[in-house]
């Protein structure tokens, strides 16, 4: 470094270690508690002494709760959302960046504006729309009563997506941050690429398939992983969109492990559940840390 900064380095090191402790301590407590049995826990209350009951707790989670099923649901929904968001964003970003013509700015703005208002804010009406996706069709058909004049009655179509994978996934996809990231990324690519493609006689779809996709593989995967994790940790939407225990996601299931208060909650069991629910995305993060960081740092430029 520039000057003799040992004292600063020491302070920075202390800060980092304090930060590590703050981040890791809750996780460590979760793991330790998960190894204790309910009886141990009742007898000793909070204790940092590991027990030997981890397997027992896992077995109980596996056989007596819906968490395994819900974890599977999380995998499926997160995969759908990640693929969907990246796929949709890829198509839109491609259309916005590589084509001439009017309306591109508007499309881009329509996608980016959705970043500002999270789904959590409009949960009530998003729920209503998901309960009947045909709502806008009905509204248009019944506007001014032309449908009734034509057929003798108002149009009343029903298409309920609640309690289905589509119903949980689609609203989570209605968010344009991936589009923003990919548009920014495509704009940094040299324009010669596409020009060369035109000279070679390649159409826009071939250019997308043969040149752009291979070129964007890295950012797309990073984005996909990031979106997968983002979908996995969703709580409010799956909570309302899928009410039956077998159809909801793991995070919701974990929060519902809390019993209705007839006895002291089985915290060791809850913490075991927390491990199960957290481990898959945690492994992804730990493994793909560099890629995710690059993907994210991309988003900010």
């Amino acid at each position: 470094m520039i000057e003799n900064t040992r004292s600063i380095d020491r302070a920075a090191g202390a800060v980092l270690i304090a930060g590590l402790a703050f981040v890791l301590a809750p996780l460590a407590i979760v793991v330790v508690t998960a190894t204790q049995s309910y009886e141990d826990f009742l007898a000793r209350n909070f204790s940092l002494v590991p027990g030997t009951h981890l397997i027992g707790n896992l077995r109980e989670i596996w056989t007596r709760t819906d968490l395994p099923r819900q974890t599977l649901n999380s995998v499926i929904v997160a995969a759908i959302v990640a693929t969907g968001r990246v796929g949709l964003a890829l198509c839109t970003a491609y259309a916005v960046v590589f084509f001439t013509g009017r309306g591109r700015g508007l499309v881009y703005a329509a996608a980016v504006a959705s970043i500002m208002l999270p789904l959590e804010l409009m949960i009530i009406t998003a729920y209503q729309v998901t309960a009947n996706v045909a709502l806008p069709v009905n509204a248009v058909a019944n506007m001014g009563g032309w449908w009734a004049a034509l057929t003798g009655g108002p149009l009343d179509l029903h298409w309920n997506l609640l309690d289905s994978y589509a119903g949980i996934s689609l609203p989570l996809m209605a968010q344009g941050s991936a589009t923003l990231i990919l548009v920014q990324f495509f704009r940094t690519l040299p324009p010669q690429l596409a020009r060369a493609a035109i000279i070679d006689g390649a159409g826009p779809l071939r250019f997308l398939r043969d040149i752009l996709l291979p070129l964007s593989k890295g950012p797309l995967t990073a984005l996909g992983i990031y979106m997968f994790i983002g979908a996995w940790v969703q709580y409010m939407w799956p909570l309302v969109a899928a009410s039956s225990p077998a159809r909801t996601m793991a995070v919701v299931g974990l929060a519902r492990l809390q019993e209705d208060g007839e006895r002291i909650p089985d915290f060791p069991l809850q913490m075991t559940g927390a491990i199960l629910v957290t481990l898959p995305p945690l492994i992804l993060i730990a493994l793909f840390q560099r890629r995710i960081v690059r993907g994210l740092a991309l988003s900010e430029k």
Binding site: A131, N132, H158, N160
Partner: peptide, 22 residues
């Protein structure tokens, strides 16, 4: 017989279901 996970969620789903005829 379909469990809804609570009286309130059951009602909330019934409202949405009734509005969409299901």
């Amino acid at each position: 017989c379909i469990g809804q996970g609570g009286y309130e969620t059951g009602m909330q789903k019934a409202i949405a279901a009734y509005r969409s005829g299901q």
